[in-house]
Design a binder for these strands. Structure first.
Lengths: 198, 198
DNA sequence: CATGCTCAGTTCACTGACTGAACTGCTCCT
DNA sequence: AGGAGCAGTTCAGTCAGTGAACTGAGCATG
């Protein structure tokens, strides 16, 4: 699956998509990016994914134009979604909805809201208050009724992504917070990236 | 991934879903079932998947309640979707849409229509003619503008699933056709299964 | 009853990918 | 110079996927 075109069916967009995002870990990495994770080490600790695999996946996703990699002001490396990557949100949403429906009897584990008016989103991403199809940067994600606080992880990254937040907004880890202005500038960039090239 | 709970994140429905349908081949098998494939040998030839892997995947999907396995009248084995399995259609649709959008410049490879009135479905599965959210058994799938007839496979199963047809309707291979009434009875059962327990 | 067919599934040797832990090399901070 | 944080790399062990050949049940035919 690492090499190009391992599914024979050249005439199926499902097979094509799975060549990109169908490998183990890939969609979880992408979910984390939606939730604001951007740094190699944060993916590694939050997902407990072997670093070698993480390296491969990130490289591949960058090569495929799903993520972009660049050095931030502090010299660190950041991975962010391209418009193509943002286009995967319906895929993530569909899988989450299915998992919620069949494996989370007490309700959804995460709810989506329209950040502008607080309305809940339905399965298609439409705001139940204003009726609009809400673009990804305006989606606010938060723990839902099925979220289990007792067994949630306690590393800073997990805590951050389990806090209500807008998609794509970078998480602020202790160090990043202390670096003056870093958090806010990052957030602005995230919004730009997701909005304009789409 | 074959064993239970290999993704650590117990609080994420995405991880939960991927434990079920995230393995290589799994979603392609499920797509084939939506397209009417039901028999072990047909999956094997159409997907060119190693038979040992196919055995494992089918077993696992049956065990997880995504498929049911039973013997048909002729003593053959059939795999069909449960309501839980039918619930995966939005996942398949989302992945197909993404693949169409970013890897099929000449248009979608497969289009969905409302079988009742012939209206095209949008990304959320809503009929653009009548405005309804179309249930899976009423969806008609057909080759779209991006479908490439020149390199489509020519085995009977591929030919069958590339013919416009309703989802879940069993494909009729030569032998099945000759068995009197088999095809129609199969179709009826498919509709029952998908409709009533949902 | 012997022969041959289809079909579902198993077996097996091989290969390639994943795993986890330790290590490298870079930059910033003091 | 010394230490800490970070982004990877390396490596030996293991496990899962691959492809081809095989098994065994059920059916049909002569």
């Amino acid at each position: 699956m690492t090499l190009p075109s391992t599914y024979a069916d050249r005439n199926c967009s499902l097979a094509r998509s799975l060549e990109i995002v169908g490998e183990r870990w890939t969609l979880l990495i992408i979910r984390d990016v939606f939730f604001g994770v951007r740094r190699f080490g944060d993916f590694a600790t939050q997902l407990k994914i072997p670093r070698a695999v993480l390296t491969n996946r990130l490289k591949f996703l960058v090569q495929e134009g799903v993520l972009i990699r660049d050095d931030d002001a502090t010299g660190g490396v950041e991975y962010r979604l391209t418009a193509k990557g943002v286009g995967l949100w319906p895929v993530v949403r569909a899988l989450m909805s299915w998992g919620d429906a069949f494996y989370s009897p007490s309700g959804v584990k995460r709810a989506e809201r329209h950040d502008q008016d607080g309305g809940l989103l339905d399965h298609e991403g439409r705001c139940q208050d204003c009726g609009l199809a809400v673009p990804v940067p305006e989606i606010r994600i938060e723990p839902g009724p099925g979220f289990d606080r007792t067994d949630s992880d306690h590393d800073p990254v997990s805590v951050a992504i389990n806090t209500p937040r807008r998609l794509l907004e970078p998480i602020m880890r202790p160090r990043t917070l202390s670096a003056a202005g870093e958090g806010e500038r990052g957030a602005t960039r995230a919004a730009e990236r997701a909005d304009s090239p789409a």
